[in-house]
C-alpha cells in the first residue's frame, strides 16, 4: 500500500545557520519525485527531517502519522533511506549487512526469523547480488555497494524510500542501472520515492516531477520541462546550460562560459545558504 509524505512549513537551524526555511513539500503516494538543487541547498536535510534524524520546526507527516510523534522503530518500518555515504562496518558480510534492514521488524533480543531470511533472499535475488552474499561489504565496488545499500533499504520493506544522491560516484552505466532498478522496484512495490539528485539529466530522464530546492526553500516544482530551464539553472546553480528535448525527455547540456564576465553569474552566486549538513556532496558538479 502506498503512503504519501508531506512536509509542512519545515525549518531547520543548525549551529545558527538556517538550513531549511519554511519549506513545504507534498509527495503523492506511489510517485517518484526528484529533488535537485545546488550544494548546500538543504536536500539532504529534507531527507533527514523525514526520518526524524534532525530537529526541526514544522510538521512532517508520513501517511496520516506525524513523524515527531512516532517511535524511532515505527518510523523505520515506514521509511527507509539510502544514505549518500553509508558507513561500512569492516568485516561485515553482505548478507549480514542486508539483514540489518530487518532490525525494525524484530525485537532487540530475537534472532532473524525464517521470514526475514526469505525476504532478504528475495531482495538479493532481485538485485542480482547472490554471488556477493558472502563478500565483505568493504571490498565492493561503487556500483555493487550502491546495490547492496539499496538492498538493505528494500529489506526494511517500507512503503517509502528515500535516496540521497544514489548515482554519485558511479560510472555512467552503473548510474543508469541503479536508476532503472529503482524505477522497476518502485512500480513493482508501489513505493513512494524521494531522491536527492545531483545529475540533472538523470533526474529529468527518470522522474515525472522535479523539485528545485535552493537556500532551504522550494523555488520550483513541476515537470522536468518546467524546472530544468536555462534561467532557473543559471539563477540557482550559477551554471550556463542549453536545454534540449530528446524523445519527449529533457536533456541539459552544460556550456563553457564565455571569457567575458557575465553579470548574471555573479548575482546568482550570492544569497545561497551554506549547509553544513550537506557537506558530503561538495565534490561534484562544478558545471
Amino acid at each position: 500500500m502506498s503512503v504519501p509524505v508531506a512536509l509542512d512549513d519545515v525549518s531547520v537551524q543548525l549551529g545558527g545557520t538556517t538550513i531549511l526555511d519554511h519549506l513545504s513539500l507534498e509527495i503523492a503516494a506511489g510517485t517518484w519525485v526528484s529533488m535537485i538543487g545546488p550544494n548546500g541547498a538543504g536536500k539532504t536535510t529534507v531527507l533527514r527531517c523525514i526520518t526524524g534524524a534532525v530537529p526541526y520546526q514544522g510538521t512532517v507527516q508520513i501517511g496520516s502519522s506525524v513523524v515527531a510523534e512516532m517511535q524511532v522503530r515505527e518510523v523505520a518500518r515506514t521509511v527507509a533511506i539510502v544514505p549518500q555515504h553509508p558507513t561500512l562496518p569492516e568485516g561485515m558480510r553482505v548478507v549480514d549487512y542486508v539483514l540489518l534492514g530487518r532490525t525494525p521488524h524484530r525485537g532487540a533480543m530475537t534472532s532473524e526469523s525464517e521470514h526475514d531470511l526469505l525476504l532478504v533472499g528475495q531482495v538479493l535475488d532481485a538485485l542480482d547480488l547472490e554471488r556477493f552474499a558472502d563478500r565483505d561489504v568493504a571490498t565492493l565496488s561503487g556500483g555493487e555497494l550502491q546495490r547492496v545499500v539499496i538492498a538493505r533499504a528494500l529489506a526494511q520493506d517500507t512503503p517509502i524510500l528515500l535516496l540521497d544522491e544514489p548515482t554519485t560516484g558511479l560510472d555512467i552505466g552503473a548510474q543508469q542501472e541503479v536508476m532503472e532498478l529503482i524505477d522497476r522496484l518502485r512500480s513493482q512495490r508501489e513505493l513512494t520515492v524521494l531522491s536527492a539528485m545531483h545529475d540533472l539529466n538523470i533526474a529529468g530522464q527518470f522522474t515525472e516531477r522535479i523539485v528545485l530546492v535552493s537556500g532551504g526553500r522550494v523555488v520550483a516544482d513541476g515537470a522536468p520541462g518546467d524546472v530544468l530551464t536555462p534561467e532557473l539553472i543559471d539563477r540557482h546553480y550559477g551554471a550556463r546550460v542549453r536545454v534540449e528535448q530528446d524523445a519527449g525527455r529533457v536533456v541539459v547540456v552544460p556550456i563553457r562560459a564565455r571569457l567575458e564576465v557575465d553579470e548574471s553569474l555573479n548575482d546568482s552566486a550570492d544569497g545561497e545558504a551554506d549547509d553544513p549538513a550537506d557537506k558530503p556532496d561538495e565534490e561534484i558538479l562544478d558545471a
Partner: peptide, 21 residues
C-alpha cells in the same frame, strides 16, 4: 542481551536511527 544491537550500531548513529535503533 544487547549484542545484536551493537552490530546495528556498527553502521553509525544516524543509520542505526534510520533502522529503528
Amino acid at each position: 542481551a544487547g549484542r545484536r544491537r551493537l552490530d546495528v550500531l556498527s553502521v553509525g548513529d544516524e543509520e542505526a536511527h534510520a533502522l529503528g535503533v
